[in-house]
């Protein structure tokens, strides 16, 4: 069993680098949502006759695939604490 208690007198201001059981459960749920969304967008894009609609659906399918990979990375042990997106809010 993992024990990660701070020594006496120290306090964690934020959770340490790890995944909670809840994080893990949400990640696997979210991966399924993204996979389905990507498949649906790609399938719909192939069925479309309107070029604008087709392009929009392809772009969205691509977005969900990117999101899938970002989420998957959080389950990859060793890399799971790495953030994909930069600290763009600090700029």
């Amino acid at each position: 069993m993992y024990q990660n208690q701070p020594s006496r007198g120290q306090r964690m201001t934020q959770p340490p680098r790890m995944l909670s059981t809840k994080d893990c459960a949400y990640l696997t749920d979210a991966l399924s949502w993204e996979l389905l969304a990507a498949k649906k967008a790609h399938t719909f894009a192939m069925q479309c006759s309107d070029v604008q609609v087709k392009n929009q659906l392809e772009q969205i399918g691509q977005l969900h695939q990117t999101h899938y990979d970002i989420l998957l990375n959080h389950l990859n042990s060793g890399k799971s604490d790495q953030q994909y997106y930069g600290n763009q809010y600090n700029q």
Partner: peptide, 12 residues
């Protein structure tokens, strides 16, 4: 929980 996960999920 994890702040990096928070940042990525917020971005998504």
């Amino acid at each position: 929980s994890n702040k990096n996960l928070f940042n990525d999920v917020l971005h998504i």
